[in-house]
């Protein structure tokens, strides 16, 4: 299991009636990565995550932690940390009761570790869930599942509805307490700008298909964003950029691969931002077809 990918998905397809939720999705997640799963609403993020934990049967070949999710669901659920998109902790419960409950349900859960993690937060063990703010509930939930001795964490929109401070505390705890170079985490979100610096890799879904699956390091290498004067706009357009956008009076053209030298010299190379790339690859279906 040492050099195996934690997640290995090949040609996953999932249909609900006539709607295709996942269309020939192939992705791999090695160890030690922070992978962002990006997509607009309905792009298939939640379906993919549910398939990964064995909650939805899919066509294709799928291995998670070396297990087949639908066949080995019970075992799998004890070996990974998962927060579903409709995550709710029981409102009536006290935090210490949840710790006891987790100890009974999860063989790999450490109550001691959960208590240590909770000390980072302002949540106390005697607090009732219903007395906590949304941000505190999210932190409690993260503390509970990060106390499972697992190799993989799957978070479906974990910061939805949280204010900016709570989101920051959430991600701080994740980086601090989970990311140790061995464990990986898959996070779905559409707050693309915010998670960009956090990620090592990104998977973009568009209408059930993988629009892009790449490391952030490779994004800097593969995609070229050129900042240029309006006068160069026609020349840039002729070189078929993926996207052009305006910012502070200058225009940026985003290319997949280096454009010809005479084009490159017309602009100044800037960092292609994840949100621009996301817009370019998931907004316009025609461009996506060309991409594939």
């Amino acid at each position: 299991m040492n050099n195996m990918n934690l997640i290995e998905a090949k040609n996953l397809t999932l249909r609900y009636g006539k709607k295709t939720a996942l269309n020939d999705v192939s992705v791999a997640v090695p160890k030690g990565r922070v992978v962002g799963l990006l997509g607009h609403n309905g792009a298939g993020k939640t379906s993919l995550m549910k398939a990964l934990v064995g909650l939805l049967p899919v066509q294709g070949s799928l291995s998670v932690l070396g297990l087949e999710p639908t066949k080995n669901r019970q075992q799998l659920l004890t070996e990974l940390s998962y927060i579903p998109d409709v995550a709710v902790l029981p409102r009536w419960a006290k935090v210490h009761e949840l710790i006891t409950l987790m100890s009974q349900l999860q063989p790999k859960f450490s109550a001691e570790r959960a208590r240590t993690l909770l000390k980072r937060t302002s949540v106390s063990e005697n607090d009732k869930i219903k007395s906590l703010s949304k941000g505190m509930v999210a932190q409690t939930h993260l503390a509970l599942i990060a106390a499972i001795d697992a190799k993989l964490m799957i978070l479906d929109e974990p910061t939805l509805g949280l204010d900016v401070i709570s989101r920051k505390s959430f991600y701080e705890m994740l980086i601090d307490e989970w990311c140790d170079g061995e464990r990986s985490v898959l996070i779905s979100t559409h707050q693309v700008e915010e998670v960009e610096a956090l990620l090592s890799d990104v998977i973009m879904l568009d209408e059930g298909r993988v629009a892009l699956s790449i490391s952030l390091e490779d994004i800097d290498r593969r995609f070229v964003a050129l900042n240029h004067d309006p006068a160069a706009a026609d020349a840039m357009a002729a070189a078929h950029p993926l996207l052009r956008y305006r910012e502070q009076g200058r225009t940026t053209s985003l290319f997949d691969g280096a454009p010809p030298e005479h084009i490159t010299s017309l602009g100044q190379r800037v960092r292609p931002s994840l949100v621009d790339l996301f817009m370019a690859l998931t907004r316009n279906p025609a461009l996506n077809n060309k991409q594939a």
Binding site: I175, C179, L198
Partner: peptide
């Protein structure tokens, strides 16, 4: 590395 990653809320590889 971890302290810096946490302080700047960025990926440890970065």
């Amino acid at each position: 590395v971890r302290a810096l990653a946490s302080q700047y809320v960025i990926n440890p590889l970065t």
